[in-house]
Amino acid sequence: MNEAVLQCVGVTKSFGDFVAVRDVTFDVSRGEIVAILGSSGCGKTTVLRLIAGLERPDAGQILIRGEVASTPQRQTPPDKRGIGMVVQEYALFPHMTVRQNVAFGLNNLSNDQKKGRVAEVMSLVRLENLQDRYPHELSGGQQQRIALARTMAPRPSAVLLDEPFSNIDAGLRSEVRRDVEEILRVNDIAAVLVTHDRDEAFAIADRVAVMSDGELHQVDTPEAVYHLPSSKRVAQMTATCDFIEGVVLQDGTVDTEAGILAYDTHSSDIKPGSSVELVIHPDDFGIDENESGAMIVQAREFRGDATVLVIALPSGATLRCRQDSHCAITSGRRVDLILNRPGPFAAFSV
């Protein structure tokens, strides 16, 4: 199970003076889905293009099934890599029917074999009856699944998905996402998915690689990058969060305005006495109305499925607290914070 299908080792790529990808290292095992999460322009698409062999790295190397596929000196052309890619626009061939599109990657098979394989992948994406349509006659979601079927047809060892769900209506998105995930899981395929949507990354990925400015900051399980981000930057990219300052005590807790809190950290230079910042998520604290409480509700935002209260601490710092939709506390009230979080808080040195 744990063999690496894809490995990027210290991969760097520049366009002119602009460093698009800097020293990126990660690997993907068989059957694993890795999501690269980052805002647009952070270099995540370039990582996919490097793995596909559409760009040549300036430094580092890329291994596919243990064999070197890309180095700055030489690289295997994209058609010899056995890697599939689904791009954001799907890039279906407009002059070919769905059947011809899906069969396009099967040039080594006999006609009968082609027919069989096309039928197989078409049933995989549940679009058996659309084989004679042209791409422009399909809906966005159907095009997306055809693109996936076309990519899966030649049985690639890994699949790269570039913002695969961004062109699909919000209402359909989670359904299509579950379908895609199932297809990848059933076929035990290694996949790298690029997205700017953290909910999408968390929902589908085994591991999330958080990327900004061309660098990978943290590669870990969704829970880990959410609860124990390695930097303030990662915390901001993976969650809605606030930060409160505090001082580390002798017993390994942090003294803050919101109370004495347990902490955990990736950094090695946090010791008793050092000043730290803790990441606070909106669901970490509950609130209780108390007329002599130290905190004040500064603002109230009703969101339908939740009510978000902005709580002002005595120092003037604010925290967001998510309450249920029935919460009736209005702004201006005095409140107390109640700790909800069972685990430690992620800490960074200030």
């Binding site: 596909a52 058609d79 061939f93 030649p154």
Partner: peptide, 14 residues
Amino acid sequence: SPKIEEAARCLGHG
């Protein structure tokens, strides 16, 4: 779009 040509390259065509 060059993406279409790239998609074809990724499907094993020279």
